[in-house]
Simulated scan of single mutants.
Amino acid sequence: MNSEVIKVFVGCDPNNCDLEQMMVLDYSIRKHTQHPVEIVWMQLSHDPDSPWYSNQETQEGWHTEKWATPFSGFRWAIPESSNFEGRSIYMDADVIVLCDIAELWSHPMNNEAIVIAKGGKSTARLCTCVWDCEKAKQHLPALKELQADPEGHKKLMQLIKEKPELVQPYQDSYNNIDGEGLPIEQIKILHYSDMGTQFSHKYALPRLEASGQKHWFDGKIMPHPRQDLTELFDQYYQEALDHGFKLENYLVEPYGTFQKATQVNYHGNKVTRPEDEKNWFNRSIKYLKSAFRDKKRFSLDD
């Protein structure tokens, strides 16, 4: 195991909005493991030879207009990008790893499953998961087909719901959503999933504003309800800098304008916004109204 390279694919913004998240995630992975790790940053690209290629003007490559994030559909291309060999981990960029990533990498998988993820059945979450790339080949469309279908991400999420045997559930704390009532010591991988309360905003938004740029998230920004988790991110952010990690190491040539769904009506999750969840009637009315105004709604795991 020590000589095996753990391959981690990370979905992130192509216009340098997520630099703080990328640095903290990178540092957190390497802090807790002695195993060799290769990180592939999945970002929209103008390069036709890139698996993340998208030409928004000519409608070539990835169609992103129905995605909630700049990378929502990329996770389905990981097995082919890994040559349908071995295992590959997928993570969103808004993650802090608090355990040895080798634990997740070596998690047992049953014969039918093609991916290890949180939950199961209709609640499976693929925002942190482990692909068996060879077995996934028989269930996933080819890359070109994935890229060309604006509904591809939605269809494959539905496939996972209809065939729960394809998902091997793991311990929930490998994809802990915004704390979920657990102390930090019991969290293996923290996914600060609510896009409105992300810890990185306090660093990223001023940086972007200084350069005349806007963040891709266009919903309401608010404090995270867990101060200890906020402090944890700050701690890892400073530790990364102290260990020689730099934001500029993650800079890319900005991709430019791309299409995606808006988060103007985004409501986070029941962990960060429990009062919103309790008021289900008002939320249902808001949802119906927004559905008529904007067809680009999305679920939490998009």
Results as ranks from 00 to 15, higher is better:
residue 95 V to L: 14
residue 184 I to C: 01
residue 240 A to K: 08
residue 88 S to D: 08
residue 133 C to Y: 04
residue 112 E to A: 15
residue 80 E to I: 10
residue 253 E to M: 07
residue 284 S to Q: 03
residue 176 N to R: 04
residue 231 E to C: 14
residue 207 R to A: 15
residue 238 Q to S: 10
residue 68 A to C: 01
residue 266 Y to D: 08
residue 232 L to M: 09
residue 175 N to D: 03
residue 141 P to D: 03
residue 208 L to R: 11
residue 251 L to H: 15
residue 86 G to P: 13
residue 152 G to N: 08
residue 282 N to W: 04
residue 173 S to C: 08
residue 205 L to Q: 11
residue 227 Q to E: 14
residue 221 I to C: 09
residue 40 V to W: 05
residue 94 D to Q: 01
residue 220 K to W: 01
residue 18 D to A: 12
residue 205 L to F: 10
residue 82 S to M: 12
residue 150 P to R: 02
residue 220 K to I: 10
residue 91 M to W: 12
residue 151 E to G: 06
residue 20 E to P: 02
residue 121 K to G: 00
residue 41 W to T: 11
residue 108 P to A: 11
residue 145 E to L: 08
residue 142 A to S: 04
residue 60 E to N: 05
residue 274 P to H: 11
residue 85 E to Q: 11
residue 157 M to E: 05
residue 125 R to C: 13
residue 3 S to Q: 13
residue 85 E to I: 10
residue 192 Y to F: 15
residue 209 E to R: 14
residue 49 D to K: 13
residue 119 G to Q: 00
residue 4 E to D: 12
residue 43 Q to A: 12
residue 44 L to C: 09
residue 185 E to L: 02
residue 77 A to T: 06
residue 282 N to H: 07
residue 132 D to L: 06
residue 101 I to P: 02
residue 70 P to G: 05
residue 255 Y to N: 11
residue 295 K to V: 14
residue 122 S to A: 05
residue 132 D to R: 10
residue 250 Y to E: 11
residue 181 G to L: 00
residue 131 W to L: 08
residue 237 Y to N: 13
residue 228 D to G: 13
residue 26 D to L: 11
residue 162 E to R: 03
residue 187 I to P: 00
residue 217 F to Y: 14
residue 298 F to L: 05
residue 66 K to Y: 02
residue 128 T to P: 00
residue 1 M to C: 05
residue 243 H to N: 15
residue 2 N to V: 07
